[in-house]
Write a protein that binds this DNA or RNA. Sequence first.
DNA 1: TACGCGTGGGG
DNA 2: TCCCCAAGCGT
Length: 297
Amino acid sequence: MSTTARTPAPLLHSIVLDWYRENARDLPWRGPQATPWAVMVSEFMLQQTPVKRVLPVYAAWLERWPTPASLAEDAPGEAVRMWGRLGYPRRALRLHAAATAIAQQHGGEVPDDHAELLALPGVGEYTAAAVASFAFRQRHAVLDTNVRRVFARAVTGVEYPAPATTAAERRTAVELLPPDRATAAEWAVGVMELGALVCTARGPECGTCPLRRHCAWQQAGRPPHQGPARRGQSYEGTDRQVRGKLLAVLRESHGEVAQYRLDAVWPEPIQRARALDGLVADGLVEPVAQGFYRLPQ
DNA sequence: TACGCGTGGGG
DNA sequence: TCCCCAAGCGT
């Protein structure tokens, strides 16, 4: 797609790898002490939640459940409770379900096979590639929002990538993958880190970017995003907000919770009932007898 | 494919 | 203040 002369891939690799070795954050899910399970836990928590908020929950989670089997033995509701305020609590349920599948079908070991990872609950295209790459040092195109933004700018010359991952992006990611496994794995985390620290969505620090002399967006004069504004996430007054308030009450109460305590979180009864029904349908809440509810056991 | 799904921080 | 967005997934 790009028509400008591209920097040779090996040069890009050495630039990003050199930059990463100097600038990588010391995060607990990186490095040799992190087990594949620890990497998987971090990836679930980091889906749409910033690193800073993940750190304390990640530490407490692995302290309590150092293996998939240990989590699988506990109730899913305990996972939801431990998840705390990370948001999108269905991820906690899916992580518990993934741990159960690992315990029952993979001998308690996180699988190193990409297809087997992808088959686990809550593991999609990104997470499967991330775990295979970060935990097992395999060669995969790891396309998260950071990498997609770096490629959009440096390769395609636009400020932001499309809302959803495209075939063209996958092609670019595969073409730029270093040939050997170890280098590919470090490239993947390096490009991600560059997107997280320098090539950010707001206020990119192009002046200090190691790719500034190779970046198509920079060379084009950093043109602003074209086309329709990207749709924001509405929240105020949505079912999502009501679900959050309901679940917060359940999380903070041990045992069963009476209906009236849930009723107190939202004045509008139709929406409140719909939100509660949704939580039950998702398996995040269990109805008990006569108007009592609890986290799933 | 577009949408629903939480929560909080930084510009 | 308000708005944008933060290592996505499942339907």
